[in-house]
Lab assay of single mutants.
Amino acid sequence: MRVFPVYAPKLIVKHARIFLTGVIWVKDLGRLEFEKGRFLLPRKSLPKVKQAILELNELIEAQN
């Protein structure tokens, strides 16, 4: 598990694309899981977490 002390979308996306499957922890967002290079949306999450995951997945799609 990698810990990101700040929310840096480009760096987080780079990590997810390299490792494809895993878990990261982002300060103020908490634990985020990714599989096959995409972030998974938890069943229950705060609106800011949901927005961050959608933003990260959009960045991943834009890079493909």
Rank of each mutant, 00 (worst) to 15 (best):
I24W: 01
Y7A: 01
L20D: 11
L40T: 08
S45N: 12
F34E: 00
I53F: 03
K50P: 03
R38A: 06
I60P: 01
A8V: 11
G30N: 02
K27P: 14
P47A: 14
S45F: 09
T21I: 08
N64K: 05
E58H: 11
G22K: 02
E58P: 00
K27L: 14
F4A: 00
V23T: 12
I12H: 01
K36E: 13
P42C: 09
L59G: 04
E55H: 12
I18S: 10
F34L: 05
L32G: 01
V49A: 05
L29H: 03
Q63G: 10
E58S: 13
V13H: 02
L40A: 05
P42T: 09
K50D: 07
V13W: 03
K10H: 12
K50L: 07
K10S: 13
R43I: 05
T21K: 14
E58R: 13
G30R: 01
F19V: 14
K50V: 08
F34I: 05
R38D: 03
L56D: 00
L54V: 08
V49Y: 07
S45R: 13
P9Q: 04
F19R: 07
R31N: 04
L11M: 08
I18P: 02
M1W: 00
L46D: 06
G22S: 03
A16N: 00
F4G: 00
R31S: 04
P5C: 15
P42M: 08
E35V: 13
Q51L: 10
L41C: 08
L59I: 09
R17P: 01
V26L: 03
E55A: 08
A16R: 00
E33W: 15
Y7R: 01
G22R: 02
I24T: 02
K27I: 14
L40S: 06
F39W: 01
A62H: 12
L20N: 10
G22L: 03
F34Q: 00
P47Q: 11
G37P: 00
S45K: 09
R43K: 10
E33M: 14
A8L: 12
Y7K: 01
I24L: 07
D28V: 05
L54R: 14
G22P: 02
K48P: 06
I24F: 05
L11H: 07
R17N: 08
F34Y: 05
E35D: 13
G22V: 03
K50S: 07
E35Q: 13
V23W: 09
A62E: 13
I18D: 12
L46H: 10
T21Q: 13
G37Y: 05
E55Q: 09
L32N: 02
G22C: 05
Y7N: 02
R2A: 13
I60F: 08
L41I: 11
P42G: 10
P5D: 15
L46T: 12
L11D: 11
R2T: 14
D28R: 15
D28A: 14
K10E: 12
P47E: 05
L20H: 09
K14N: 13
G37F: 04
D28H: 15
F39T: 02
Y7S: 01
V3A: 04
I18R: 11
F19M: 10
R2F: 15
R2E: 15
N64H: 12
P5H: 15
I24E: 00
F34C: 03
V3T: 09
I60E: 03
F39K: 02
V49P: 03
H15Q: 03
K27M: 15
Q63C: 10
F34P: 00
L29T: 04
E33P: 08
M1P: 15
V6Q: 06
G30E: 02
D28F: 13
I12W: 00
K48F: 07
L32P: 01
R2S: 06
V13N: 02
Q51G: 10
F34A: 00
L32W: 01
P9Y: 02
L56G: 02
K44L: 07
T21V: 08
K36F: 11
D28I: 05
V49I: 14
V6I: 12
Q63K: 06
R17F: 09
V3E: 14
L59C: 04
K48G: 06
R43V: 06
T21L: 06
A52W: 03
V49Q: 07
G37R: 05
P47F: 08
G37C: 09
L41N: 07
L32D: 01
G22D: 02
R43A: 06
V26N: 00
V3Q: 10
T21N: 13
F4D: 01
R17Y: 07
I12N: 01
L56H: 00
L59P: 00
E55K: 09
E55L: 08
G22Q: 02
M1T: 15
